[in-house]
Design a protein around this nucleic acid. Sequence first.
DNA 1: TTGGTATTGATAATGATTTTCATTATCAAT
DNA 2: ATTGATAATGAAAATCATTATCAATACCAA
Lengths: 148, 148
Amino acid sequence: MDLFEQGLENEWLRQLGERGSRLTGPRRAIVRVLVRSRRALEPLELFDAVRVEAPGVGLVTVYRTLEALEELGLVQRIHESGGCRRYLRAPQGHQHVLLCLRCGQAELFDGDDLRPLFARVAARWGYQIEEHWLQLFGLCPECQKASA
Amino acid sequence: MDLFEQGLENEWLRQLGERGSRLTGPRRAIVRVLVRSRRALEPLELFDAVRVEAPGVGLVTVYRTLEALEELGLVQRIHESGGCRRYLRAPQGHQHVLLCLRCGQAELFDGDDLRPLFARVAARWGYQIEEHWLQLFGLCPECQKASA
DNA sequence: TTGGTATTGATAATGATTTTCATTATCAAT
DNA sequence: ATTGATAATGAAAATCATTATCAATACCAA
Ligand SMILES: [Mn+2]
Ligand SMILES: [Mn+2]
Ligand SMILES: [Zn+2]
Ligand SMILES: [Zn+2]
């Protein structure tokens, strides 16, 4: 078992509890899968994965748990040209997503400094910039080999 | 009448024709509204705006025309935290969107040079970067006044 | 002007997400 | 441990945006 993911799982459950949510079987199972996934998952994919270990869980509970985790900022919706219904572990701190176009694997990176750009744009248009989205798409090392 | 928008309207119709599409009344009306909008519009909003001048047009035709214009790259879907169903005139060349969080007004800016960042990320993760999304959100000058 | 056909709008179908509601499970207070 | 208030659950139904169907119409090349 991965120690980092184990810790993350406990932390998510703790935050759910903090918020007043009961720590139920279905929630534990859903959190367990989400924390460990390297890919962004659609509700139905998540549902299928959860049911492998917790067969009784309903799709509706998957939707409800995703909503709760999104409110807590533990999970984020991923936007893609093909659709925007997949969810991924949210980054900690200032990070952005790098997605593999072929297999969907996700990585988080940081180190972008866009402040000079924001300043120019703000000056040009008179906007007060509040937020920015940056997302990179490409081919992961495995998929590069596969398509070579 | 705005000359730039007039020209853009003609250009869109030309490209639709080029592609083998007939230049019908409904299409002309839809293009006219889209070309002139400073905001990204949902299909239903677009439908309502079109029906002011062309009352007979159906919602289905709005969807079909949006699809055609998106294929031609003349229109793009805008992604927001609240939903991803609005469409906006696509940028020409390398530009990105700046959106007002309050009124939805959209501006296009360029001048971002993220190549150094891409190079670092590519090296760090072994990805071959193919594409990037950058979007800024803020308050336009009018909305800043309104909320002051 | 005309004929072949792309386009249209009304309608029905679809599919993802939400709502409803009776039943069950959690957990703080005994 | 037991209890009991109530949060959470899953099945089923409802909703809502989008897509498919289809007979009638409008476009446009000839
Ligand atoms: Mn950033
Ligand atoms: Mn760019
Ligand atoms: Zn890959
Ligand atoms: Zn504004």
